[in-house]
Design a protein around this nucleic acid. Structure first.
Lengths: 213, 213
DNA sequence: TGTTTTCGTGAACGTTGTTCACAAGCTCAA
DNA sequence: TTGAGCTTGTGAACAACGTTCACGAAAACA
């Protein structure tokens, strides 16, 4: 009957994710977790060093899931024989938007957590997951031949990802909820359309100047 | 000798901004403010309803300052007779990057605060400041004639702003600090170059399909 | 069975945001 | 000047939080 140590950890993480989704990072409380998991506060600290580690573990799960949905979306297009780069990028972006919408509270928490982590230690499994996501986008860009070397293609992938990400997060601070989705998608369509057109016409090779001070 | 009520509020806000800049949102503590301002805890709550209001007020100041630097940057270009749209957008972006770098702790706090505010009440002075920023970008886009109607130009402005914003915030979660600035700027240059080229070639009018489910 | 190790427990500590009864100071009419 | 009414500063007090830890139970092993 009693749960395994790992099973209990999973249960705690599931509860933690639900709490984050409902009320954001402030809603992740040790006592609430303990109560809902049917264990004591001390036991939570037996499974995880502190709440930050719980939060980190939840984020890992989310990033994993995001990567999986991204790959699944690409596989779908593959099966349908869609090769158009614009379509494929839009599909990737759509997958990302859906994912964020499916995790209204916990995804913002991922970002906020990332920011706090900025001063902390070096690279770890966290960055590996993010890099995997970048690679997927880079793979899509590889399909459309824009005459980009590997470096520039990787740069373009990071730029595209960051831009979509910015659109989504900026969009969800606005007000009405029904308009948000439409506005976000219009921005993404504009961005991707302009991005592809720009790459086709060599916009990526614009000479560099006007650097910041 | 004694400070005015408004003077004391300013002092509190200055202290609060410094605290946010040093340690992020978690570092904004009522007792610390009180101690540094030379008043009691209760007096802080006499000036502001709660710490959220303090945080909000600090953010207002930051947004105001950001708007001012943006306008100043535009005025500089005007004086120098720079009319090239790409140059002007890059200058805007550079001003934004400089601003974020100048407020390493408090600017992330602005964003995190905005996110918490998502569920809260309706529009207020906050959104007005953000809209003003959008208008500046839209003004720049107006200069370069891309055959955009007002709606599309506003959309493009928001898209561009959100994208730059995403690049900057995504960039600063990475590791090394010296490389960050360079990476961010390379992404911005790519984005702006591709964006302008894309607009010139009508990428903004790509037909809409592949909408999200 | 005896011993050692592991593990769950919840009381306890320090810190946080926020409140509130009280006191000190200010304003202004008498 | 005096005193009543009001505003404003104060810090003790409260509840809730993250985290720790001594203790006892259970499990593992000899």
């Amino acid at each position: 009957m009693a749960l395994d140590k790992e099973e209990m950890s999973d249960k705690v993480l599931a509860i933690a994710e639900a709490l984050l989704n409902e009320g954001g990072a402030d809603n992740l409380k040790a006592r609430t977790i303990a109560e809902q998991a049917g264990i004591s506060v001390g036991s939570v600290y037996n499974l995880f060093a502190d709440l930050d580690e719980v939060h980190r573990a939840v984020n890992m799960r989310l990033l994993d899931r995001l990567g999986a949905t991204g790959i699944a979306a690409m596989a779908d297009l593959e099966r349908q024989g869609v090769t158009d780069v614009r379509h494929r990028i839009l599909a990737m972006a759509a997958a990302y938007v859906r994912f964020v919408e499916a995790h209204p509270g916990s995804w913002p928490a991922v970002l906020a957590f990332n920011r706090r982590r900025a001063t902390r230690p070096g690279p770890d499994a966290y960055d590996a997951l993010l890099d995997a996501l970048f690679d997927i986008v880079a793979g899509v860009l590889k399909a459309g031949d824009f005459g980009l070397d590997d470096d520039r293609r990787a740069l373009a992938a990071r730029t595209l990802w960051s831009s979509v990400h910015g659109i989504v997060t900026s969009g969800y601070v606005a007000n009405s909820n029904s308009r948000q989705a439409e506005e976000i998608w219009r921005q993404i369509e504009l961005l991707v359309g302009v991005f592809v057109k720009g790459l086709e016409h060599g916009g990526a090779f614009a000479h560099a100047d006007a650097k910041p001070a």
